[in-house]
Nucleic acid binder design. Structure first.
Lengths: 126, 126
DNA sequence: GTAATTGTACTGTAATACTAGTACACTAGA
DNA sequence: TCTAGTGTACTAGTATTACAGTACAATTAC
């Protein structure tokens, strides 16, 4: 299963931070294992339609954090040190998404119960 | 039950957007009902330790969206407008919102089960 | 050795978000 | 009327984010 590197321009979260999150979650979920090569700077920039500098920033910060190893000339790779899954960060993200979801749903006249019911149906389908 | 207006400086989401989300969420949950007065601009700015201009922006955008009513000199209030839509339209929008929600959640490494659990917790709180 | 590919390092520009400060207009209540 | 509290409207400055372009350095494959 490939890693989904897509980013969300509407979220308000800076691109470079979204890229970092995607990589870290990929590692946390085992989709990326130590030694794996990440997309090249230019490649990922083209795929996401962002500036190469933005990808560079994401990669460099993660290298400083010890998450990635970069080797000039050959590429960027997943480091041997596993980043700890930040449960707080995860909870915060979930909270944010849910808050936004419910606010939007209300604008369309949908209740929390409606959401729950809709999600349950989707769960059964999957 | 009071509305929690706290914001998260680390999330990367602009303050004014977080304020909007909180207010809309409060309305969605019934913690804020039409006619209720919101904290004043200066009051909320002090509480959140942000600039009054930031609160102004959040309030103004929501007024343009029809969510709030502002009355110069007296305060800012929850709007009376309750959108009414037919059942088909309602179902279509629910579907659309859920699709977008799940896409975004998955992007952040959150599963459908995570979403359901988070929503159940919110339901219990209300 | 050469060419292609990789990461790196700059400079500069623009838009957005946020802060700071000041002043003004309207409303409610004593 | 007076005063306090409300939203409103500015101007200005700073920091962050992202983009655009160029050039250089290291590695790899041929």
């Amino acid at each position: 299963m490939a890693v989904d590197f897509s980013i969300d321009p509407k979220s308000g979260v800076p691109f470079y931070r979204q890229i970092k999150e995607r990589v870290k979650y990929g590692i946390a979920r085992g989709l990326l294992t130590p030694g794996d090569q990440l997309p090249t700077v230019r490649q990922l920039a083209a795929e996401l339609s962002v500036n190469p500098n933005t990808v560079v920033r994401a990669y460099r910060e993660m290298e400083l954090e010890g998450v990635l190893d970069t080797q000039q000339g050959s590429g960027t790779f997943v480091g041997l040190r596993q980043p700890q899954i930040d449960e707080l960060e995860r909870q915060r993200r979930l909270d944010q998404i849910l808050t936004e979801l419910l606010a939007r749903a209300h604008q369309y006249g949908l209740s929390l119960a409606d959401i729950l019911e809709g999600l349950r149906q989707r769960k059964e389908e999957s």
